[in-house]
Simulated assay, not measured.
Amino acid sequence: MSETPAQNSANETNSAAVRGELDVLDQLMKPEVQKSLTELVEQLPKLAEMVTLMTKAYDVAQSLATDRVLIEDLKGGLGEFVKPIQDKAKGIASAAIEASDRAQSDSTTIGLFGLLKMLKDPQVQKMFRFAQAFLEVMAERQKGDTETK
């Protein structure tokens, strides 16, 4: 009796499955695999607890990621935090641009008396106090760095 191509294919599939099962059984007979399986079985309660915790964390993260109200609240809160900083940066940038334009258009020479007059300006005084304090801090840090080495 001759086999049809369908029967031949089914027989090949069955023999491949049997070979696969034998390969698995051969693997299970190895001492290192048995030892690993024993250790794995001993740790199953811990693994189950970890999987439960990870599942709960995933569920929480998923619910937070899909909560449109929370996302909108976070965007609004972040916007309220960033807006003043953004406005201040824009103000400083526009002042710097305007000062640059004025400095380029003014070609007058500042002499000694002009410098003395500028020294009375509160903004110039503030700038000098800042520069002095900054230099003092840098000197203290440099002194501290050299002492620690």
Rank of each mutant, 00 (worst) to 15 (best):
L70E: 06
V51Y: 07
L37D: 01
I110K: 11
K143A: 11
I97L: 12
E32M: 02
F128G: 01
L70H: 08
E49R: 15
E39L: 10
L44N: 04
V82A: 10
Q142F: 09
M127T: 14
D73F: 06
L53G: 08
K120L: 06
M118I: 06
L28T: 01
Q62K: 15
F81N: 10
E42R: 11
A6F: 07
I71C: 02
L53V: 03
T66F: 03
A93H: 06
T55A: 13
Q123T: 08
G76W: 06
Q125D: 04
P31D: 12
L40R: 14
S94W: 03
L115C: 08
V51P: 00
F128K: 05
K46R: 11
T109R: 05
A48C: 05
A6Y: 09
K56D: 11
G111N: 14
T66K: 15
T146R: 14
A57W: 08
A131E: 09
Q62I: 02
Q132L: 10
K120P: 01
G77E: 12
L70C: 02
V18N: 15
K30W: 02
Q7K: 15
T66P: 00
V24T: 06
T148C: 10
E72I: 02
G76F: 07
K149P: 01
Q132P: 00
I85G: 12
K88A: 08
K120F: 13
G79T: 09
Q123S: 14
Q142W: 15
L115Q: 08
T66H: 09
E136N: 09
E12P: 00
G91R: 03
S15T: 12
M118C: 05
K30H: 05
L22K: 14
R141G: 12
G79D: 09
M54E: 11
Q27C: 04
P45K: 01
D67G: 06
K88I: 03
M29Q: 13
S105I: 04
L116E: 11
E3P: 00
M127N: 13
A48Y: 12
R19Y: 11
A65Y: 06
R102Y: 08
G111Q: 04
G77W: 02
M118G: 03
S9M: 14
M1K: 12
R68C: 04
V60A: 02
D87G: 08
A6Q: 15
T38K: 15
T52Y: 02
P5Y: 06
P45D: 00
P84I: 03
G114P: 00
T52R: 12
V69Q: 07
S107D: 08
T109W: 05
E39V: 01
V60I: 10
T4N: 09
E49P: 00
K90I: 02
M29E: 11
A57Q: 12
T55G: 07
Q34P: 00
Q86E: 10
D73P: 00
L44W: 02
M29H: 07
D101C: 04
A96W: 04
S2T: 09
E32D: 07
N14E: 11
D73W: 10
Q125A: 07
I110Y: 03
A96K: 15
L74G: 04
F130R: 11
T52H: 09
E21F: 12
G20Y: 13
